Simulated scan of single mutants.
Amino acid sequence: METGQQPEVWMRGPIPGVPPLLQPVAHALLQAKEEMGRYMAGFDDSHLWVMPADVASVGFHLQHITGVIDRMFTYAADKPLSKLQFEYLQSEGKALPGITAEDLVSAFGKQVDIAIARLQKMGEKDLTDTRHLGRKRIPTTLIGLLFHAAEHTQRHVGQLLVTVKLLPLLQNR
């Protein structure tokens, strides 16, 4: 651990108001939010949509994880996606005029905050209740959707970190 850096979120104790069985979801999402802030500090917006070696761009990862959290929590509430959510899904990975890395990081942070607020309103007794995923209504559980939101976010944060680290190296070739 670097000097002055706090322990990982899960090592700091419970998130107030989040039920005990949902703490890992909250910890993972909050950890991703903190890491995103560190990884993206000083990021050059000209690299936002670059796809080194044909891997996903930093912009895609930022849009995608924001959208995934929103969609998984919508399904967790046992609701279908809205037209706006489908439009957002279709726009993931597309460069939007005037959008900056800071804008995308901020949107991600806000989505994490919304997710934490929703976790605080959930009870543990419903975690194994059936929920449905997507238009095909694939059966899953409430805890399954919440866990997927957390682990999928962490996976993309890891991929984003690698891309952020590679971009300057590839630009200097």
Rank of each mutant, 00 (worst) to 15 (best):
K165R: 11
Q171H: 13
R155Y: 13
A115I: 09
L104I: 10
I69F: 05
R135P: 06
M72P: 02
D54G: 05
I138H: 10
D126M: 11
A107G: 06
G93S: 11
A101I: 03
P52K: 04
H132L: 15
A115C: 05
Q171S: 13
T141F: 05
V55N: 12
M122S: 04
L62W: 09
H152D: 09
L62R: 07
R135N: 10
I143D: 06
M122G: 00
P80V: 11
E151K: 03
E151T: 04
Q111R: 15
Q111V: 05
M51C: 00
R118T: 14
E87Y: 10
T66G: 15
T100D: 01
K110Q: 14
L169R: 07
I116S: 01
F60M: 11
K79E: 14
A76K: 00
K125C: 06
K136H: 09
T163Y: 04
F108N: 03
T163P: 02
H64E: 04
E124L: 01
A76C: 08
D78F: 07
T130S: 15
R71N: 08
E151G: 00
L166K: 09
G134R: 14
L127N: 14
T141C: 13
D129A: 14
Q90F: 11
V164Y: 01
L161W: 07
Q120R: 15
L133Q: 09
A101R: 05
H132D: 06
G134Q: 15
D103R: 07
T130I: 06
L81Y: 14
I116E: 04
E87N: 10
K121G: 15
M51A: 01
L96V: 12
Q85K: 13
T100W: 02
G144Y: 01
L133V: 12
A117S: 12
R131E: 04
A150T: 07
H152Y: 05
I114P: 03
K165S: 09
D78R: 13
R137A: 02
V55W: 14
E87D: 15
L169A: 10
H132M: 12
Q171V: 07
P97A: 08
G134C: 11
F60K: 03
F147N: 08
K136I: 06
P139S: 09
T153N: 09
Q85I: 15
D126L: 06
R131D: 04
I99M: 15
A95K: 10
G59V: 00
L161K: 14
R137D: 00
A53H: 12
D103W: 11
A149D: 02
Q159R: 00
L104G: 09
L145S: 07
H152S: 03
V164G: 01
V105Q: 06
T100K: 02
L170Q: 08
L167W: 04
L160V: 05
A149N: 02
V162N: 02
H156Q: 12
A150H: 04
Q171Y: 03
G109S: 12
I114L: 12
R155E: 07
T130P: 12
I65N: 13
